[in-house]
């Protein structure tokens, strides 16, 4: 197999006594859409933050295009980051800037393009996400879906090879969420980008994914094609796919705590 675009090896993250990620290994190939699934608190967002180099792991490595982003020089990291676009869950648009200023910012800061060229490029990026007419608006004047699309436009401003999405469909109605799925597929088809999408929306995941990885309590329990993943018999994966809830009162610890609160600690019921 060709060298992976993103390669995560033995990634372990410990905060205090809490092991958030435990020896995670994952390869993402060039041009594929990898969807990282997992329940709340499974470590998805932590893994994403380590893959884009926002945090340093306790152990393990993250390689992007063969470069270890935690051991490379500042200039190498800068070069790597120029090839990555990140669309954050809350969009993270700069509120003091208009939408077009947000999208044009990476071009102004990191290229030597002339202002008129940047203006045209910005319009192209906004038009590609269906926001051609919203350039002059401020982020607070946009709807949730528009904000996310503006964030995608900004993430693609420098034509990155890798796009990372954190919960792209979270908080959106099904129609807007479906629109974002189509946008991700369009970007993949048009620009052959490698994409990592962190989500817990199953419909969205199976629409856009080439492969699916699933995190459970900090460990990867599956990395597979979406077809094989859907047929998995792993109990946790089945529970996730079949939307089965955890028992609300499941442990003796909870019952013991109830007894303590009722002043019946140690008594046998």
């Amino acid at each position: 197999m060709a060298d992976a675009m993103i390669s995560v090896n033995g990634l372990t993250v410990v905060y205090g006594s809490h092991r958030v990620l435990d020896n995670v290994n994952l390869d993402i190939q060039q041009g594929e859409v990898m969807v990282l699934l997992g329940g709340s608190g499974s470590g998805k967002s932590t893994m994403l933050r380590h893959i884009v180099g926002l945090e340093r792991p306790t152990a393990g490595t993250v390689r992007v295009r063969g470069v270890d982003i935690n051991r490379c020089s500042a200039n190498e990291l800068k070069a790597i980051r120029r090839t990555m676009g990140v669309a954050f869950q809350e969009a993270a648009l700069f509120n003091s800037m208009s939408v077009e200023e947000n999208v044009g910012l990476p071009m102004h800061e990191l290229t030597t393009l002339a202002d008129p060229i940047i203006e045209i490029m910005t319009y192209v990026k906004l038009a590609a996400v269906g926001l051609g007419g919203a350039g002059k608006l401020l982020p607070q004047e946009l709807s949730g879906g528009m904000k996310k699309r503006a964030a995608v436009a900004r993430a693609t401003a420098l034509d990155p090879e890798i796009l990372v999405f954190d919960e792209p469909s979270a908080g959106l109605d099904p129609i807007v969420a479906a629109g974002l799925d189509e946008l991700i597929l369009f970007l993949k088809r048009a620009f052959h980008m490698t994409m990592l999408v962190v989500t817990h929306e199953l419909a969205s995941a199976f629409r856009i994914a080439d492969r699916v990885a699933m995190l459970y309590k900090g460990s990867l329990i599956a990395v597979d094609t979406k077809e094989s993943f859907q047929k998995s018999t792993h109990p946790r994966i089945r529970q996730f796919l079949d939307r089965l809830p955890d028992p609300i009162v499941e442990s003796t610890a909870v019952q013991e705590r109830f007894r303590e609160l009722a002043g019946m600690a140690g008594e046998k019921v």
Binding site: M84, F88, Q89, A92
Partner: peptide, 13 residues
Amino acid sequence: VTSEIDALRTMAL
């Protein structure tokens, strides 16, 4: 809080 600082860092700024 709104991840704007993280966004700057991921944009190599």
